[in-house]
C-alpha cells in the first residue's frame, strides 16, 4: 500500500465561469482519518467528487491510491463513497441494497454488511425510502464499507442528522476504522464533528486550500498570544499571524511558529476549533459568519 492516499497537483475544477476548486495542491497520508473542513460552497464536495471520479478535473492532476480516480472497476473497488445526504434507492428495500452491493462489488463482505444491518436494527424488508435520515445514512455507510475499500470518502455524512444519530454514525465509522486498515476522508462544515474522529485536517476556503496537516502538528505549531499592544507590535520574525484582534490596550493573536519568550506575552494553547476559525476568518473577505459552531 502506498503511503499517500491522495495526491493533487494544481487541481482545478471550473463549471463554466465559476471556479469551484482552484489550483489545489495537496498530499494526504494513508492510514489517517482526514477531515476536510470549510464553509458551505468552499469546494469540499467538488474535491471529494474529483477524488472518487464522479467529476473530471478542468486542469491539474489527481491521483488516489496511486491511480486516476474511477480509472477502471479495480480502482472503483478500492474507494468507498457516501455522497452528501446519503442517497439511496427509495423503491428498493434495505435487503435489496445489500444485494445490489454484493452484485456490483467483487470485494463485498456480506457478513460485515448483514451484521451491521442487524446491529443497527434495520429491517431488511423495509423500503429505503421510508428510513429515517439517520438510518439512511447508516445504510449508505454500510454499502460503502462492506465493499471493503482501502479508502472511504464521506461527503458531509452527518450534516443532516440529529445529535444522537450523528453520534451513532460516527461511532459506527470509528468501529470500522479501528477494525479495518482503511484511510478515511470526510468533509464537514462542523469542526466539532471532525475533532472527535480526525487526525489530519484540511481547511478549504473559497475554493483554495488554506492549511493542511496532522492535527497534533497543527495544534503544536499554533498558539494564541495575549499581549499588550506594544509588545504585540514587536513580535519576532518568522511568526505568522493568522488572526488578530485588538482592544485599546491589549492584542489577541493566533500565530503559527515558535512561541516568543517575551515575558509580557501570555502564550495559550489553542483548540482545534479556534484554530480552524482563525483560518476561516482570515480567508473571509466579508465578516459574515462562515462557520457554524455547535457542541
Amino acid at each position: 500500500m502506498t503511503s499517500t492516499v491522495l495526491k493533487a497537483g494544481g487541481l482545478t475544477k471550473r463549471y463554466g465561469r465559476r471556479t469551484a476548486l482552484a489550483d489545489c495542491t495537496l498530499t494526504l497520508p494513508a492510514g489517517r482519518v482526514v477531515g476536510l473542513v470549510g464553509p458551505n460552497g468552499a469546494g469540499k464536495t467538488t474535491l471529494l467528487h474529483l477524488a472518487v471520479g464522479l467529476l473530471a478535473p478542468s486542469a491539474g492532476t489527481i491521483e488516489v491510491l496511486g491511480r486516476r480516480p474511477a480509472a477502471d472497476a479495480d480502482q472503483l473497488a478500492r474507494v468507498g463513497f457516501v455522497a452528501q445526504d446519503a442517497p439511496v434507492y427509495a423503491a428498493l428495500t434495505v435487503g435489496d441494497h445489500l444485494r445490489l452491493g454484493a452484485h456490483t462489488n467483487p470485494r463485498w463482505d456480506q457478513r460485515l454488511a448483514s451484521e451491521r444491518v442487524r446491529a443497527l436494527r434495520l429491517d431488511p424488508a423495509q423500503k429505503a425510502g421510508r428510513l429515517s435520515g439517520g438510518q439512511r445514512a447508516q445504510l449508505a455507510l454500510t454499502l460503502a464499507i462492506a465493499k471493503r475499500p482501502d479508502l472511504l470518502v464521506l461527503d458531509e455524512p452527518v450534516a443532516s442528522l440529529d445529535p444522537l444519530a450523528r453520534r451513532e454514525f460516527l461511532q459506527g465509522l470509528m468501529a470500522f476504522i479501528a477494525e479495518h486498515d482503511a484511510s478515511v476522508i470526510l468533509s464537514s462544515h462542523l469542526v466539532s464533528d471532525l475533532e472527535r474522529v480526525c487526525d489530519h485536517l484540511v481547511v478549504l476556503v473559497d475554493s483554495h486550500v488554506r492549511v493542511a496537516g496532522d492535527v497534533d502538528d497543527l495544534l503544536a505549531a499554533h498558539h494564541r498570544l495575549v499581549a499588550p499592544r506594544a509588545a504585540a507590535a514587536e513580535l519576532p520574525p518568522g511568526l505568522e499571524v493568522i488572526e488578530q484582534s485588538h482592544t485599546d490596550r491589549q492584542s489577541t493573536l493566533v500565530v503559527r511558529g515558535d512561541a516568543p519568550a517575551d515575558p509580557a506575552v501570555v502564550v495559550e494553547q489553542i483548540g482545534l476549533e479556534d484554530l480552524v476559525l482563525a483560518y476561516l476568518s482570515q480567508g473571509a473577505a466579508t465578516p459574515d459568519p462562515v462557520l457554524e459552531v455547535t457542541r
Binding site: A73, L76, A83, P87, V88, Y89, L100
Partner: peptide, 15 residues
C-alpha cells in the same frame, strides 16, 4: 434526480 447515480457510479462498475 434522486442523486442515486452517485451510489451507482461509485460501486465497482465503470460508468
Amino acid at each position: 434526480e434522486a442523486g442515486t447515480h452517485r451510489v451507482a457510479w461509485t460501486q465497482s462498475v465503470t460508468r
